[in-house]
Design a protein around this nucleic acid. Structure first.
Lengths: 377, 377
DNA sequence: CTGAAAGCGCTTACAG
DNA sequence: CTGAAAGCGCTTACAG
């Protein structure tokens, strides 16, 4: 059954608001005008400059005067005009996040909302605003970033999901935009050397997964990663090969998929068609893993008996799946908070403090836990 | 197994960036300085005022001069300083969205990310920025809105998830903040009359659901809605009672839950314990429905044989569940787009155009489709 | 059609 | 410690 209704939208409060505003502007006057430092100066009997010094905790005013000024500001309910401050400051008091991701995928992955909430937690504390935009691809993101910067809307940006030759990195370098870089689901990204030490952060989580699977008796593993143009995919692929080689004597295979359920299914089909198919597959996100578990029958496998499944990201999907899906849980909000803190450090010219270290945790669930344990294969 | 790794975060590009910036500022000079209308005026040999007129499509410049000025602006890569424009304009060029919702729930519900993407699609087209914040409760949201407004960071705001006595509405009225109001998952909200005509938009979708269920032979239905302090919950509860009364002769029961899986389960347990338990339950969101389906065995019911399940919101969860879950699909992105468009209309003093009408569609899936059709109960 | 001038609300050297 | 002044980059009456 399909039908559609004509929902109506109306500016309830806004309408009331408008007329009030008009009234007030004409009549009462000062009541609605937002106070400026000039008002504070008048009330406290000093110059605008002194007010500014007092408000910004600069030297140049006596303690008593400062007190008086702050009290007046408080009493008037003064707040600095962001525009005026920006204009003289050359600082926007805002940072930007341009998410380049297909809207449909965005709706399915809880990742970004959590990342944003994490960023917000540290930005809000510093009175810095977050400008957000959602664009379909990296080129569009470049356009948005360029616009934000040209219009002085942001002091810096956070970059996620870095590509291998990412045009955003070129833009940022070209224009000198302060930025903090973060892979979509994990470790840090380096400009020229995605393969170097930054791989370190990926080894631990994958080693935990591999240790769990080998303990369950698995000897043939596979990974279904993200698209290879992502730097974090490359780092993880590398870490995966190293970790599996160390554990099993030879590097286990990796297939690329685009994080959608469809792509995950397709990858698994190819893996199962091999001469020596894997007995366990580690997916880079929850959506692919959950789709494979949901489609296990049409794939002709039992989970976990024929195929163990692990998700590289934990979410509701993993808990609700039947069987429930083992997953690597990462503290995405902490990730977002760390990125924001990093950017603020850069902006303040501070040495990026000892980095926050979002941890990970492997959650073993039914999808990879043999009913009868022991090396059965 | 639990472990955690010390992921490192570093400002790769930012570091490079900083030094470059310093270099350039000292040496090359103009190369990195962002051009202003003064530069344009100099290049094209006119006054700043003329430049401004030309750039803003105001009368006061001859066609030829305008051409020349626009060309110069284009060639210099000029973009207006948001701060300067705001300061003289008294317009921020930005609107705000303060999401008041528990971060954990936010991570589970795809709703907001889609809503935001929809808003963005119309804001970006108008060159309006979106300020976003995520706060735990309505009071915190009031604080953020107050700050944004006092600092002139936004020209208006979009409000979602309106409460019955919502302090944000008071704030908006008090300060005269232009705003557009939108229920979290549906129809418009009215200031004083949540029960009136705005209920209209809720009837259609629920009527489709009820028609489907009665066609499947169900005679005892129940709804598990959101918390009653939400206006949209109240509207839907009302619509539900009306629609079920019309279809079945008497209004069917409603229970309140807080959108979490746990609350959904609890509500179902209470329903099943009744003397005449319902044979079909309609949940207000996907998370509750999916949790109930996942826990059907511990609840002691078969789905759909003993209990049909319908979700009031469609998502990945519904498709992946086993059995898959019938759902009401709403065009959330269109909702967001409509809210943004409405706000822009209000800001421009335009009559809010014929409202965009986000439709709905009922998707019948296994969770409510009897294997053997016909009135069996 | 065009230009000189004031102003938006701050900050910041620069003299007292 | 304090104040008068210039400036950030725009817009907008106001005279020519």
């Amino acid at each position: 059954m399909i039908s559609s209704s004509a929902g109506r939208v109306r500016p309830a409060a806004a309408a009331a608001t408008r007329s009030e505003e008009t009234d007030v502007a004409g009549a009462s006057g000062a009541a609605d005008r937002r106070p400026t430092i000039r008002d504070i100066a008048r009330v406290s009997g000093v110059s605008k400059a002194s007010v500014s010094y007092a408000l910004n905790d600069q030297p140049g005013v006596s303690p008593q005067t400062r007190e008086r000024i702050l009290a007046a500001a408080e009493q008037l309910g003064w707040r600095p005009s962001a525009a005026a401050r920006s204009l003289s400051n050359a600082r926007a008091g805002a940072v930007g996040l341009a998410i380049a991701r297909d809207v449909r995928l965005l709706g399915e992955e809880p990742y970004y909302m959590r990342f944003i909430a994490g960023m917000e937690s540290v930005l809000a504390a510093q009175g810095v605003s977050l400008l957000l935009t959602v664009v379909p691809d990296v080129d569009a993101a470049v356009g948005v970033l360029r616009g934000w910067w040209a219009e002085r809307r942001v002091d810096g940006v956070v970059l996620t999901d870095l590509r291998v030759d990412d045009p955003r990195l070129d833009l940022v370098a070209e224009l000198g935009i302060p930025c903090a870089v973060r892979g979509a689901t994990g470790g840090p990204a380096e400009r020229d050397d995605p393969a170097a030490e930054s791989v370190d952060g990926e080894r631990g989580p994958l080693a935990d997964v591999v240790a769990h699977l080998t303990a369950q008796g698995h000897r043939r593993l596979a990974r279904v990663g993200g698209p290879e143009h992502f730097q974090h995919t490359q780092r993880r692929n590398l870490a995966w090969r190293e970790v599996t080689r160390a554990a099993l004597g030879r590097a286990q295979p990796v297939l690329a998929a685009d994080y959608t359920g469809r792509a995950g299914l397709e990858a698994v089909r190819r893996l199962l068609a091999r001469a020596h198919p894997p007995t366990a597959v580690v997916f880079d996100n929850d959506v692919m893993a959950a789709t494979v578990v949901a489609e296990r029958r049409s794939l002709g496998v039992r989970v976990p008996e024929d195929l163990a499944v692990v998700a590289g990201e934990d979410s509701f999907l993993c808990r609700l799946a039947d069987p429930s899906i083992s997953a690597l849980r990462r503290d995405v909000a902490a990730d977002g908070a760390a990125s924001a803190a990093l950017l603020l450090d850069v902006l303040a010219g501070r040495d990026p403090g000892s980095p926050q270290t979002p941890g990970h945790e492997f959650i073993a669930r039914a999808s990879s836990t043999a009913t009868r344990p022991g090396p059965a294969r």
